[in-house]
């Protein structure tokens, strides 16, 4: 599951990259809706969001992009969106516009769990999957509560800390945490935050149902003269490594 920041480096790139990434082997694509104050994001994604906002990206424009790519791809399109945006636009309006644009689901990384039930219900009503985060610091009693509000899949943070590339990944610890969650839910579990290299993605793929790669992809797209080509190559590389890691021996 690659993460792209909508509007970065340009709106056109995002529009071209989404179907191309699906063709390169991504069954689900996470589309970040830029927010001015993304506190969970490291420098790469925060900077991409600020640049996208400066170039005039709005949620309305992101919905247009999704509408236009929807006809060209069957991949699942999931919005990563701050609750600041949802609250301001109004949950009803946000969810119905997201659904009619062609989004299949949303991830809300910063909602108050006590206030998440109505939004989860609204998403269900509009046939959008609804995903919340589980962190390494999440107490066992909250796991069931979080999972109970999710539909589609659960987003498990690989580590504490903000999004960004990292060398360290404790796969044993991750496996244990996934086992704990699986005892409480049947939902698929996708892992993100700090997963950056094909080798790491392959390792995570052996224990999780999905792997989210964000900063590593956004950084490459930002540096490249041909961001779509670069993104496609990187995602193809990731899926190939993952496929061979999980292929039956």
């Amino acid at each position: 599951m690659p993460f792209v920041c909508a509007g970065f480096p340009t709106a056109e790139t995002t529009e071209q990259a989404i179907p191309a990434l699906a063709d390169a082997g991504a069954p689900i694509i996470e589309i970040g809706i830029p927010f001015s104050d993304p506190i969970a994001d490291g420098p790469v994604i925060a900077d991409a969001m600020h640049k996208a906002l400066k170039s005039g990206i709005t949620p309305a424009r992101v919905f247009q992009i999704v509408k236009s790519v929807r006809r060209r791809t069957q991949a699942g399109l999931v919005a990563m969106v701050s609750d600041s945006i949802i609250t301001r636009m109004g949950p009803e309006r946000f969810i119905s516009e997201a659904a009619s644009a062609g989004f299949d689901g949303l991830i809300v990384p910063d909602i108050d769990l006590n206030a998440a039930a109505p939004l989860s219900g609204l998403a269900r009503l509009h046939h959008l999957s609804f995903t919340l985060l589980i962190a390494p610091t999440t107490a066992p009693h909250r796991i069931g509560q979080i999972a109970g509000l999710c539909t589609g899949f659960i987003y498990l943070l690989a580590r504490v800390g903000i999004t960004g590339e990292s060398d360290r990944l404790d796969i044993q610890d991750l496996k244990q945490r996934i086992d704990t969650i699986r005892r409480q839910t049947k939902l698929p579990i996708a892992v993100g935050f700090g997963v950056s290299r094909p080798q790491q993605a392959a390792q995570v793929a052996t224990v999780a149902d999905g792997v989210i790669v964000g900063s590593a992809l956004v950084r490459r797209m930002g540096e490249s003269p041909d961001p779509v080509r670069t993104a496609v190559d990187f995602v193809a590389q990731l899926s190939q490594k993952m496929d061979s890691a999980i292929a039956p021996a």
């Binding site: 506190i39 990384p109 909602i111 769990l113 919340l132 985060l133 962190a135 610091t137 999440t138 107490a139």
Partner: peptide, 13 residues
Amino acid sequence: GRYVPETFIGALD
């Protein structure tokens, strides 16, 4: 309320 990423909740509790 607590509109923060899940990572913080343990520390806030």
